[in-house]
Amino acid sequence: MYLGMYSFRGDPAELLAGHDRMLALLPEGQLELHVCVQTDEGIAVLDTCPSREVFDRFSSSSQFRELVAAAGLPGPEIRHLGDVRSYVLPPGADTG
């Protein structure tokens, strides 16, 4: 599993609403590990893909650009974080 980050700059309240709209556009069960964090500059979205190649292909695709635009979000800064080696969820957490 590969972790990448999308940084959206702007008013956090507007960006969080756009993030909610974006999630509503995605098919249920598509996301494995997805975290949205409010930052001083806006929001940061940490998202996993099966591999770096899949992340690169998706994050540079017209499908992704159209999804972001449809949600009313600005184009993000995209950052590669690396391969996920482990993660911990609380007992009973819904893992899909």
Rank of each mutant, 00 (worst) to 15 (best):
L16D: 00
R57V: 14
S86Y: 08
F64M: 12
D20K: 09
S61P: 06
P76L: 07
D94I: 09
G29S: 10
A71Y: 07
S51V: 04
H19R: 13
A17C: 10
S60F: 02
A24Y: 05
Y6H: 05
R9K: 12
V54M: 14
R57Y: 09
V88E: 05
R85H: 12
E77N: 09
P50Q: 11
R21H: 07
L3K: 01
V45H: 00
A44S: 04
A93G: 14
S51F: 06
D83W: 06
R57K: 14
L31E: 04
G72L: 10
E14T: 09
V54D: 10
L26Q: 11
L67V: 11
S86G: 13
A71I: 02
S51G: 10
V45S: 00
R65K: 12
E53R: 11
L23A: 08
A24N: 10
L73G: 10
S62G: 13
R65M: 03
D40R: 03
V45E: 00
L46C: 01
E53H: 10
D47L: 02
R52G: 08
E53F: 02
L23E: 15
D11S: 15
Y6A: 06
V37R: 04
V37Y: 05
F55V: 02
V68M: 09
L67A: 13
A17R: 07
S86P: 05
R9Y: 10
L15G: 04
S7H: 05
L25H: 06
G92C: 08
F58N: 11
P74W: 05
I78S: 07
Y6C: 06
P76I: 05
L46Y: 04
L89W: 11
Q38M: 12
V54A: 15
G4N: 01
R65P: 02
G72W: 13
L46N: 01
I43N: 00
P12Q: 10
A24D: 12
A44P: 01
A44N: 01
A13F: 14
A24G: 14
A71Q: 10
D83R: 01
F8I: 06
A17S: 15
P27L: 10
P27E: 15
P91E: 15
L15A: 05
A24P: 13
L33Q: 06
D83P: 04
V88I: 15
G10S: 04
E28R: 15
Q63V: 14
L25K: 07
P74A: 03
G92Q: 12
S51D: 13
Y2M: 03
D56W: 04
V37L: 11
Y6R: 00
E66T: 09
P12R: 05
S86V: 12
R9Q: 13
